[in-house]
């Protein structure tokens, strides 16, 4: 019987002492946390993509709770609905933001851009970009090692082995901007998704002089400025031998695309003129009277 008593007592004592120690340690290391943090985290998507610019959803929630207003705060994944919920929890106003999508501004496919050397280092864009200009004569274009693909939390961007360029799946793209940050060549841009996902953009970031750019890539923007002259809305600017379409001003008239001599201006998701695997789109947009898009009207963005 003694044995039972001793065992019970000693175990009980150990338990009690441990409990006391645990209690004091917990008191000592207690960290105060705003209870609203947890509520905000609950409504966030939990992808921890970092698209908001904070370290994960927890970081964003803490920043939201601390902030005096939600201006400039956006969860790109959850978008407006989630921000509205957060605003509800915190009792604040929320600013509306148009949905964005990642756009790859390089059309230097294997056919358009001739390889002049072979890269034989770690398969990583950042490393290759730090080393030299790249495998082709174009020192601005996509390197195709897939840093963007690895950065994407949603599987929305993949390097197409045929073209060597990344392609964005706009259904999956949340516009978090992780790929934009990952691209050392700053080729990827977040642009307004546009009405019915229709977008116009200059698919090139080459700032070399026209002749040099043209020699390196047949689809390069040569900075001729025809598009800028053609544009009725002054949405196009040409700087450093490179045209840029301001998506806030662009009215999607597609006139610039028609005059571009190298086909560097791309339009996406417009109804194609030729019957080539069309997506069941709404009736044709009023303005669209010219040559078909350069790429198939899939998610080539």
């Amino acid at each position: 019987m003694d044995l039972v008593w001793i065992a019970t007592l000693s175990l009980g004592c150990i338990g009690a002492i441990s409990a006391v120690i645990l209690y004091f340690v917990a008191q000592k290391f207690k960290v105060y946390e705003d209870p609203r943090n947890e509520e905000v985290v609950k409504v966030l998507p939990g992808a921890n993509c970092g698209g908001c610019g904070y370290p994960g959803c927890g970081g964003f929630a803490a920043a939201c709770v601390k902030a005096t207003s939600l201006e400039g705060m956006l969860c790109p994944v959850g978008g407006a609905p989630v921000m509205a919920k957060i605003a509800g929890i915190l009792g604040m106003e929320v600013a509306e933001a148009a949905p964005k999508v990642a756009v790859v501004r390089c059309n230097g496919t294997c056919a358009n851009r001739k390889k002049v050397n072979t890269y034989n280092g770690a398969s990583n864009c950042a490393i290759e970009a730090a080393l030299y200009s790249g495998e082709t004569g174009c020192s601005f274009g996509c390197l195709g090692n897939g840093d963007c693909e690895r950065a994407c939390q949603f599987g929305a961007i993949h390097v197409n082995p045929e073209t060597g360029l990344p392609e964005v799946d706009e259904e999956l793209c949340t516009g978090c901007g992780a790929c934009v940050k990952a691209c050392p060549k700053m080729i990827i841009e977040l642009r307004n998704k546009g009405p019915k996902s229709r977008r116009m953009f200059v698919c090139c970031v080459n700032k070399d002089k026209g002749a040099v750019a043209r020699k390196a890539c047949t689809a390069a923007c040569i900075g001729c400025g025809k598009c800028a002259k053609e544009c009725p809305f002054e949405a196009i600017t040409v700087e450093n031998n490179l045209a840029y379409i301001d998506f806030q001003k662009c009215k999607l008239c597609r006139k610039c695309e028609a005059v571009c001599p190298t086909g560097a201006i791309h339009s996406v998701n417009f109804p194609p003129r030729k019957p080539a695997e069309p997506k069941p789109e709404a009736p044709a947009q009023p303005a669209a009277p010219q040559s078909g898009t350069a790429a198939a009207p899939t998610a080539q963005a």
Partner: peptide, 10 residues
């Protein structure tokens, strides 16, 4: 003008 340097940049 510009010339291609060792690293391939103009």
């Amino acid at each position: 003008d510009t010339a291609v340097d060792v690293a391939g940049f103009q």
